[in-house]
């Protein structure tokens, strides 16, 4: 007998332009899967996903259109190790947006300045620290000038002293009005910039609220337990 297992179920989520959303929950609760469905790194079996008015389905044109407008930052950075930092940031603009190389490089340098590592432009990813690599990954996504940024546990693979340099960049991005969906355990970041905090467990959205309400006045027992565990230290 095959038991049906839902990674995600009953998800009804609307994200508004410029909204900053933090998604948290225990491991295996489907937070990563949820944001990976938005740019089809995971396929959804049932239901509809609309991104910027484009329906995510099996139509390759739609998938391309959505991926061009949605940036993503991964836990493991996933920089291209055979390309320099600058080439990492110009690859997609040149080949997807057909941008002239000189212009793509100018845009990339502006972004590298924004993430505070323009001096590393000609180095290779393997020569950088984890925090620097993650900032390059953010710049690489921003080079496509996306409307929406997805962050999949961007600080989980970093040494403690490097977490803040990445979070600083993300705070700056949030203040510039970017629409952001962030899967993270950094509750300080959630309190500081989130418009809405979503708590997930076993593939369902258990609770969503403003950070003030969410942290001070959680409604469900599951949320209370989770918060007591991660805020205990």
């Amino acid at each position: 007998m095959v038991r049906e297992f839902h990674v995600l179920k009953d998800i009804d989520l609307t994200v508004y332009k410029g909204e900053r959303i933090v998604i948290c929950g225990p491991s295996g609760s489907g937070k990563s899967t949820l944001i990976r469905c938005i740019n089809r790194l995971e396929e959804h079996q049932k239901g509809d996903i609309l991104v910027n008015g484009v329906t995510m389905d099996t139509n390759l044109k739609n998938i391309d259109a959505i991926r061009r407008e949605v940036g993503m930052v991964f836990q493991q950075f996933n920089l291209f190790p055979h390309l320099t930092v600058l080439e990492n940031c110009t690859l997609a603009p040149i080949w997807v947006r057909n941008m002239p190389k000189a212009e793509a490089e100018k845009v990339a340098m502006t972004l590298l300045e924004r993430v505070k590592i323009p001096e590393q432009a000609l180095k290779y990813p393997g020569q950088l620290s984890g925090g620097q690599q993650q900032r390059v990954a953010i710049a690489r996504s921003l080079a496509m000038s996306p409307n929406i940024m997805l962050f999949d546990e961007p600080t989980s693979a970093l040494d403690p002293e490097m977490i803040s340099e990445v979070l600083d960049v993300m705070v700056g991005l949030a203040e510039s009005g970017m629409t952001m969906l962030v899967v993270t355990h950094e509750m300080g970041f959630a309190k500081r910039v989130a418009d809405r905090v979503i708590f997930m467990d076993q593939g369902e959205i258990v609770e969503q609220n403003t950070p003030g309400e969410f942290f001070n006045n959680p409604k469900s027992d599951r949320t209370k337990l989770f918060l007591s565990q991660i805020l205990a230290h």
């Binding site: 391309d64 991926r67 993503m72 991964f74 996933n78 291209f80 496509m144």
Partner: peptide, 17 residues
């Protein structure tokens, strides 16, 4: 690693590229 493919897809590169 598969992460390389995912990163390229998320930047909008098609499978051939």
């Amino acid at each position: 690693s598969h992460g390389q493919t995912e990163a390229a897809y998320s930047l909008g590169l098609r499978p051939g590229m």
